[in-house]
């Protein structure tokens, strides 16, 4: 035992400090109330995207407020990869004791098994749905100094010249919306795929593309700074966060385009547990502090209970299957 002691001791010392600091934090969150009934230990939440990403931040925020109503803590586990497929698959195959739940992102979650039925090892029936949390409508966006001021202008202009349209790439729900819009309005865009919204927004603001289709919540800051114009949003009703922006339908484009973030458990979880969690999430989403936070974070909240959510997604799924059989995008 000679020199290495220094390093050894220091490593131990550092690690113990860091752990001490953090375990305190973790203990503060543990509130073991009501032993014997569900839940009596932390619930694991699988998030199919990277820590720090949009879905992750949304999940952690609502779960943080939900602990109060659930009476237990949540442990978020990130299982990113393959556009969420890895995480969704592992949620579908998780133990059904109610202590593993996860975030789902329809329509992305629905699209994987529809587009590659032989490779993807889950489908909608493998989940028991708990609640929807966020419904983020799609949006057509142009640069602030663009000549285009409405959806109508956009399609007019598209008839005259080929507009460069930034979107999320083939196979995404944006691609489907674009294809249907092109069919309805008899136009054709020059579609430019981008990985992720940020580079696409940068390209739009720099004038490298003419128009962008994305999710409304992703461009709220730029919208508020008036650096971009949002032509229309894909929800049924106008968005609270963008009250002056019309919907697709109001502008004569008979489509909806919504990205959702919800919570689901693997199939087989007891009905009581599903209802308990759904109820707790409902209360959380009525919590004023949470609503304030969500507004600051530009999260378009939209609660749907287990029954309603199931019906909605089943209809959505049928619609997607139909479109896919007609013509893959």
């Amino acid at each position: 035992m000679k020199k290495p002691n220094y390093f050894f001791l220091m490593l131990m010392f550092i690690v113990s400090i860091v752990i001490a600091g953090c375990s305190e934090e973790a203990e503060g969150q543990d509130k073991p109330e009501g032993k014997g009934k569900y839940p009596d230990k932390p619930i694991e939440v699988i998030v199919a995207f990277n820590a720090g990403g949009g879905t992750d931040v949304a999940a952690r925020t609502i779960l943080n407020y939900a602990e109060k109503y659930v009476g237990s803590s949540f442990a978020v586990i990130n299982k990113p990869g393959a556009a969420g497929e890895i995480g969704f698959t592992s949620l579908a195959g998780a133990p059904d004791n109610g202590y593993t739940i996860g975030m789902i992102n329809p329509p992305t979650t629905l699209l994987h098994p529809i587009q590659r039925p032989n490779e993807v090892k889950y489908n909608l029936d493998d989940f028991s749905l708990i609640a929807n949390i966020v419904s983020d409508p799609g949006a057509f966006v142009v640069n602030a100094d663009s000549q285009i001021n409405s959806l109508e202008d956009l399609f007019e202009e598209a008839k005259k010249r080929k507009l460069n349209m930034a979107y999320g790439g083939p196979g995404t729900s944006e691609a489907l919306t674009l294809r249907r819009a092109e069919e309805m309005k008899d136009v054709e865009f020059n579609k430019i795929p981008f990985e992720g919204t940020s580079p696409a927004v940068a390209a739009l603001m720099g004038g490298h593309v003419d128009v962008l289709i994305t999710n409304a919540s992703e461009v709220i800051s730029q919208y508020e700074d008036k650096k971009i114009k949002v032509l229309a949003v894909g929800s049924e009703e106008k968005m609270d966060l963008m009250p002056d922006v019309p919907t697709y339908k109001e502008e004569g484009l008979d489509l909806t385009q919504i990205s959702m973030r919800g919570i689901a458990a693997p199939k087989g979880v007891s009905k009581e547990q599903v209802e308990f969690l759904a109820d707790a999430l409902k209360k959380t989403m009525e919590d004023e502090e949470f609503i304030k936070k969500a507004t600051e974070m530009a999260l378009p909240l939209d609660y749907m209970g287990p029954e309603e959510y199931k019906e909605f997604l089943e209809n959505y799924n049928d619609e997607l299957v139909e479109e896919f059989e007609r013509n893959p995008w």
């Binding site: 490593l11 131990m12 690690v15 752990i19 953090c22 973790a26």
Partner: peptide
């Protein structure tokens, strides 16, 4: 040490 570093922290 490694185990606790990764799991707790």
């Amino acid at each position: 040490v490694i185990y606790f570093f990764f799991t707790s922290l």
